[in-house]
Design a protein around this nucleic acid. Structure first.
Lengths: 213, 213
DNA sequence: GGATAATCTGGACAAGTGTCCAGAAATGAT
DNA sequence: ATCATTTCTGGACACTTGTCCAGATTATCC
């Protein structure tokens, strides 16, 4: 039979897992409230009520409001980056990358569009509150890395992938605002067109029919 | 001599102008505080203190907090759109538009970069607070119009200028965050490259030497 | 069943908020 | 100088906020 220390360890692990489960549940509920009301307007009481949970319980599972919100942000990041990462996993050439990324982004907007309001809201907050900055920079760096990695697959060097990310992010935000008026296909086409342009040789060089090597 | 009604009218006008002057002064000071602390953190007391003015005075010149902030937003819009509009006034061809707009945007970031935090902050707020939405949509529509108008000068039809605006806006926001690490020339080149790509014929058509009609 | 620890409650608390106002001060016309 | 009007002050007010905690409740194990 197992040693007593193992037993204790197993119990502790089970407890921790249960706690983590409950936390996740609270995080998802809080994310929804945050998405609906915004950072500036969502109080802990709003979050607690929407979660069907007492106010004190939030402080039992999270240090403070900032801590809770940071968990929400990280949870968002994990979900979104997993989506994008999975879409880009297999692609090897430029056309494949354009197709995969534009589909993934349009799909994200069509299915879970509202969720991304939390991201843009908190990114704005991070401009003023240093507590959120590391988490935001981490997410942004991860998204830039997606671009950088994709670009290295069909181009030797891929400097300044951040600039391509920034442009696509701008389009993403804009379409999120108007997502309810647009079809997924329309959005996909818009992303594809932009990516096509960003990932083409410079038009300044390509203007003349057969450019140099 | 003038009629008494004129005299009264002149006095009323002088008073109104003096009031407007003071308001503008308060608006500019409030904008700075708003830019520094962010919408969620800037209280009326913060704004009053930074302006060297009593709390009650803010309510004497503005209906309420929302009213004051809306004035700040509109003031920002006027200044920025005047800048951009002036830069784009004379241009007629594609190359001129690229040069003018990229210079204007880089210059805006280099000189008054921090000011634009207010814009991105309030745009995020507008996602949740309907009070700010009309003002935001108005600004965004004006910026899109800048693109649409420029594009009609070197292309017959210019559908969906909003999509070009969105991409450039994304780059603008990104560089604003990193503006302190970048030279104005670096930023200008980045804008020029993006605009060049956005305002080129589709690379899908141009890939083959001489595309079809 | 009883002991031990984890979970949860409801409310208290201080601090900060936007708003409002009675009256002081300043302004300017007569 | 007097008076009416505009401008401004300082604080009061009701309300919301995040935080905290003493004790009730529940689960877990011997």
């Amino acid at each position: 039979m197992e040693a007593p220390t193992d037993k204790l360890a197993r119990r502790a692990a089970a407890r921790a897992e249960k706690r983590a489960e409950k936390r996740l549940q609270l995080i998802e509920s809080a994310s929804e409230t945050l998405r609906a009301l915004g950072y500036a307007n969502a109080s802990l009481r709003d979050i607690a009520e929407a979660s069907g949970v007492s106010l004190g319980q939030l402080h039992y599972y999270f240090d403070d409001r900032t801590d809770l919100i940071l968990f929400c942000v990280r949870h968002y990041k994990d979900a979104f980056l997993a989506d994008v990462g999975a879409a880009m996993a297999g692609v090897a050439d430029r056309e494949g990358a354009v197709a995969a990324l534009s589909s993934a982004l349009a799909r994200a907007l069509a299915r879970t569009g509202g969720r991304h309001r939390l991201w843009y809201d908190m990114r704005a907050q991070a401009m003023f509150d240093p507590a959120f900055r590391p988490a935001m920079e981490e997410i942004e760096a991860a998204l830039i890395a997606v671009f950088a990695e994709a670009e290295t697959r069909f181009a030797g060097a891929a400097p300044q992938a951040a600039l391509r990310y920034a442009a696509v992010d701008g389009l993403f935000r804009y379409m999120m605002q108007a997502a309810s008026d647009l079809t997924e296909e329309t959005m996909r086409a818009a992303f594809a067109d932009l990516l096509d342009r960003l990932w083409s040789p410079s038009p300044a060089d390509g203007a003349e029919p057969s450019g140099r090597a």
